[in-house]
Design a protein around this nucleic acid. Structure first.
Length: 427
RNA sequence: GGAGAGGUGGCCGAGUGGUCGAAGGCGCACGCCUGGAAAGCGUGUAUACUCCACAAGGGUAUCGAGGGUUCGAAUCCCUCUCUCUCCGCCA
């Protein structure tokens, strides 16, 4: 969530940002509501503090009197404290309520978009930040979408997944499973080479962790919930990995902290069916290698660019046509300040598939999570958090299968050969 | 799942009703010392909120979390939670 101080001191910037997110004049009232609750809260706080200071002073005096044996004087003072205590109790309740109301509103305010975020209301308004400069691959009329190829070559089986679990849980097998594992290893190795520390995190997180990265409360319905233990299956490795630094004051010289991890991701994604979600386009369980950074506020955008280059290099090596979009205010995630999406061209479906989303959250996550550092003036400040997929597997597999199909098999990109142990998927 | 023990600052560890935000040690930072270092010596070293100019300097809260008793709680009571040990089960 946004820092209260920021809203207080940069109100105009907050309003500008919310307008980019298509807030109406009416919606914008939330900002003033927060500020007036904050003002009320502070004045109550001051009143309460003064009250408690007085009580503390009296209590100490009573202690002193008892020691000196002045019992009667001490007894007489007790009454005064009792009166103060009653007032304090009211003030405390009032204060608590103001804080709760304010937090509730604060949680409802999204991150303020970076200056470069274009206005817009939907994905149609996203800006093409880097287009694909070369011709897109043309496939023959016999070209098949990946779900047909999967059947033909026995690469993965969604119906089998239905039998074992339910819709959206693919079963990879044979060369398909090998390809999946090859991609995971390739992505992890590339991340390690780029200086990211590899993490294998828990696949379930508790409520605190889910709240810290912003999945709770706004995305509760998207996560699988283990009732008995009150755990959530992770929708992305971002959650457990970023939480490593929750409530941590990091050493400034350790910036940027770069972490990577492979995990399966679980998403309920209820409600959407049809051609666009066929095959691996949208599933409840998929594999992903995530990259996460904790960065100094002064260099976080530089780091963001580095992450873009990293993801672009992966796609180059896989020889997949892709483009990069700068998301508009209407399409950007709630917690992000700036997001770039990578889309890969799926030649048989003839459409772009989102395979990566790289974002800078600035202090929006770190404020909730309390990831801090001491700056040169020994002042405690919030760090910036960033993350991106590098990459999401299911759709990469879809694109690889489709784009590389030939009459007698599916070619595997050269860079993966040492991981797969084969160069072609054959019948 | 059963039985027991325990959660104090970055870490270890004292503290069982009053001047305790908390002894001592370690660690860390800075300074002195040194050719340089170690050792030694000295100083400093939690977080959040708040008053104020986000300075100096005050105030408040926090000893796992929440509630209670009391003029006063790290210390007493209740609830929850987590960790450890032993037994059981088990990859």
């Amino acid at each position: 969530m946004l820092e209260l101080n920021y809203i207080r001191s940069q109100k105009e910037e907050v309003l500008r940002g919310l307008k980019i997110r298509n807030y109406t004049e009416e919606d914008l009232a939330i900002v003033d509501n927060i500020l007036s609750l904050d003002e009320a809260r502070r004045s109550t706080q001051t009143e309460l503090d003064n009250n408690l200071a007085e009580s503390n002073k009296l209590s100490k005096a009573i202690g002193g009197l008892f020691k000196e044996g002045k019992r009667e004087e001490a007894e007489a003072m007790k009454g005064q404290v009792t009166v103060l205590k009653a007032v304090a109790k009211d003030l405390e309740a009032k204060n608590k309520k103001a804080i709760e109301q304010m937090e509730e509103l604060l949680l409802a305010v999204p991150n303020i978009p970076h200056q470069s975020v274009p206005p817009g209301t939907s994905s149609d308004d996203n800006e093409v930040y880097r287009a694909w400069e070369h011709p897109l691959p043309e496939l023959s009329d016999q070209a098949k979408p990946h779900w047909e190829l999967a059947k033909e070559y026995n690469i993965f089986d969604l119906e089998l997944g239905v039998k074992i679990t339910g819709a959206g849980f693919p079963v990879f097998r044979g060369q398909g499973a090998r390809l999946e594992r090859a991609l995971i290893n390739f992505f992890l190795d590339e991340a390690s080479k780029a200086g990211y520390e590899e993490i294998i995190p828990p696949l379930m997180v508790n409520e605190d962790a889910a709240r810290a990265t912003g999945q709770l409360p706004d995305k509760e319905g998207q996560m699988y919930h283990v009732e008995k233990e009150n755990f959530y299956l992770i929708p992305t490795a971002e959650v457990p990995i970023t939480n490593i630094y929750r409530d941590v004051i990091v050493n400034e010289k350790d910036f940027p902290i770069k972490l990577t991890g492979y995990t399966p991701c679980f998403r309920r994604e209820a409600g959407s069916y049809g051609a666009h979600v066929r095959g691996l386009n949208r599933v409840h369980q998929f594999d992903k290698v995530e990259i996460v950074q904790i960065a100094h506020p002064d260099s976080s955008y530089e780091q963001l660019n580095g992450m873009l280059d990293h993801v672009a290099a992966l796609l180059d090596k896989l020889k997949l046509p892709y483009r990069i979009l700068r998301l508009c205010g209407g399409d950007m995630g709630f917690t992000s300040a700036l997001t770039f999406d990578f889309e890969v061209w799926s030649a048989a479906q003839k459409r772009w598939l989102e395979v990566s989303s790289v974002s800078n959250f600035q202090t929006y996550q770190s404020n909730r999570m309390k990831v801090r550092f001491k700056d040169e003036n020994k002042k405690t400040r919030l760090a910036h958090t960033l993350n991106g997929s590098a990459l999401a597997l299911a759709r990469i597999v879809a694109a690889l299968l489709e784009n590389n199909q030939t009459a007698d098999g599916i070619n595997i990109p050269a860079v993966l050969h040492r991981y797969t142990g084969f160069e072609k998927i054959e019948k």
